[in-house]
Each structure stands twice: as C-alpha cells, then as structure tokens.
Amino acid sequence: MFSNESRGGGRGAPLLIAVAATAACLAGCGSGSASGHPDAGSVGSLQTATADGARPATGKPTATAARPSAGGRPTASGRTAETLPLAGRVIVIDPGHNPTNYEHTAEINRKVNVGNGRKECDTTGTETNAGYPEAQYTLDVSRRVRALLTARGAKVILTQDGNRAYGPCVDERARIGNQARADAALSIHADGAPTADYGFHVIAPTSMHVGGADTRAIAAPSYRLATTLRAAFAAATKEPFADYLGGGKGLMVRSDLGGLNMSTVPKVFIECGNMRNAHDAKALTDPAWRQDAALGIADGLTTFVEDASRGKG
C-alpha cells in the first residue's frame, strides 16, 4: 500500500500522494456503495493480466508449509459454546485504512506517537490499477474472518467496521487490542508495490523498548503468529511469498509500524498481495479468492491461539 504504516520494508521512503489527487482518484475510482463502505460480499472491478504486470510463469517462490488441520472446528452436530476451539478467546482484527479516509486528509495527516517517533495518524491506502481500493478489500476480508472466527467460538473485535468517518489512528488501532487483552491481533492490508512485483508477506514487530513502545514481551509470540499465519494463508490461497522483499520468505520484522510498536498483545500485519500487479489484483478483487484468504487467516489465528493455550511454541 502507499503507506509508511504498512508498505513493505527496504524500499526507500514512503510514497507521498498529493491530497487533491488522492481525493479525486479514490472518490472517482472506488467501487462499492455510495458512502464508500463495501458490503461483505461486494465484487470489485476485475483487472485482467497484462504482459508487463503479469506474474512470471516460472521461478515463483513457493510456500511449502502444510495447511493447519481442520480438526476441532465447529460443526452442525450440536457442539456447545464451551467445546468450540476458540471459546473464551478474544481476537482483534484491524481492517487497514478506512474507505473514507481520503475525505479527511487533515485528520489522518495529524502526527501521533508510535514509540520510536511520530507518524501520520493513518493513510488512504492504495488501489488496483482499475480503481478497487485497498480499504474496501481489507474491510471485506475482515468481515469474512470475523464470521469464521465467531463460528469457532471467539469474541472478535474489529477496530473499524465502516462505521467511522476516518481512521482510527495507528496508535488507537493498537490500543483497541491492548484494552481487549486480545489473545492475538492482526492488521489486514494489501501492498502497492511496482507492477512487476507479486506475492504476500507477513510483518512481525521487532523487540524494542523505546519511548512509549515496549514489544519485548510480545516479539517472540508475534513472530510465531507470523510464521503460523504465513503457512495457513499460503495453503488456503496458493499465493506465493512476495518476491520483492524479505528474501522471498514472505516474512519481515520491522520497527517502523506504529500499529505493532504500540501493541502489548501478540500482533502482526499481513500484506495479502500487490494490488498493482495484474495477477494479484485479479485475485484480490475476486470474492471467492477473498473467502479463501479469510479462511487462511482464520486458520492461522486459530492454530496460533490453540497452540498458545496448550503452552506450545
């Protein structure tokens, strides 16, 4: 995404988008309802592959981890709430950005404390070349994940559900998970890298104690969450690891993301694909693929929380 809060690491300074251009593009290109808030089952503008943006046919990085077992999921056979795999657990899902952030540039440009510095409250996010906004994608997938995790017994909290004019700011997104004492928290995004780049990656926090940030207690469990989520997402979606950062391993550890720096519960980001790549964009705008993405995310979170409750990892 075009965001210093979520863009892949090691690629230089974040892209700056003029306020007027951002408002014009997102207001004119975004799909969904008139308010900019998508329905959970809405279909974005499909984008066909082109020669310069298509994923290469060979040389793809591949994910080798197996999909987590489906054992223990709720069934229609009358399991009680207490026997559901995530009964009593709290999971916070953070849909990256907000569909109407572009209408509130002054508010989202306000600087907030991220522990080791100050950064913008939030950003508008990126979009596909056909105009499908990242903020619409993240909200749609987050709602799908919520439905799956709720069926498994979890209490699921969304940091925003299309019910806020903008934001929340990155520090508040972290605070929501902290105040809920979440067993796990996840921020869902999609990247805005150059068109030739493709694949997904997961971002975990580094261990730090500076300013208002102290991730020393959550760095190790967050890394386990990242690797568990990476395996489950790859298995469910068949999306390869990102080829343009992290050495093709689909995993980054970063210290510049306020949503991670200010967290006191295990938390990671996932960049589900590159919205600027034609092949990834076709997947990201497909409701069936988004359901697979939600299943992979739900499976990864379920496995992590269950393992943590058993003292594994």
Results as ranks from 00 to 15, higher is better:
residue 108 I to D: 05
residue 130 A to V: 15
residue 110 R to W: 03
residue 149 L to E: 05
residue 124 T to V: 15
residue 121 C to I: 02
residue 139 L to N: 00
residue 105 T to V: 07
residue 86 L to M: 13
residue 127 E to W: 12
residue 149 L to N: 04
residue 86 L to D: 04
residue 107 E to P: 00
residue 139 L to I: 09
residue 126 T to Q: 02
residue 115 G to V: 08
residue 109 N to W: 07
residue 129 N to D: 10
residue 127 E to G: 11
residue 104 H to E: 10
residue 142 S to I: 06
residue 115 G to S: 07
residue 97 H to G: 00
residue 86 L to C: 12
residue 102 Y to P: 02
residue 126 T to W: 00
residue 108 I to F: 09
residue 82 E to P: 04
residue 117 G to R: 03
residue 111 K to R: 14
residue 114 V to L: 11
residue 97 H to Q: 10
residue 141 V to T: 13
residue 116 N to S: 13
residue 107 E to W: 04
residue 133 P to G: 02
residue 132 Y to W: 15
residue 131 G to V: 03
residue 128 T to Y: 09
residue 117 G to T: 13
residue 141 V to S: 02
residue 99 P to H: 00
residue 122 D to I: 03
residue 96 G to Y: 00
residue 92 V to P: 01
residue 93 I to V: 13
residue 134 E to M: 05
residue 114 V to D: 10
residue 119 K to I: 04
residue 99 P to L: 04
residue 96 G to H: 01
residue 130 A to R: 08
residue 135 A to L: 11
residue 108 I to Y: 03
residue 124 T to Q: 09
residue 110 R to H: 12
residue 104 H to N: 13
residue 134 E to I: 02
residue 111 K to A: 13
residue 114 V to H: 08
residue 103 E to H: 12
residue 119 K to R: 15
residue 148 L to W: 07
residue 107 E to V: 06
residue 87 A to G: 05
residue 115 G to H: 04
residue 132 Y to F: 15
residue 118 R to E: 14
residue 137 Y to H: 14
residue 105 T to Y: 10
residue 88 G to M: 07
residue 96 G to L: 08
residue 141 V to G: 08
residue 132 Y to M: 01
residue 86 L to P: 10
residue 132 Y to R: 01
residue 126 T to F: 03
residue 106 A to R: 12
residue 83 T to C: 05
residue 120 E to Q: 15
residue 97 H to D: 04
residue 120 E to N: 14
residue 97 H to C: 06
residue 112 V to Y: 08
residue 137 Y to W: 14
residue 146 R to V: 10
residue 100 T to D: 07
residue 99 P to Y: 03
residue 131 G to R: 13
residue 87 A to L: 06
residue 148 L to Q: 06
residue 96 G to W: 00
residue 85 P to K: 00
residue 137 Y to G: 03
residue 113 N to W: 02
residue 130 A to K: 12
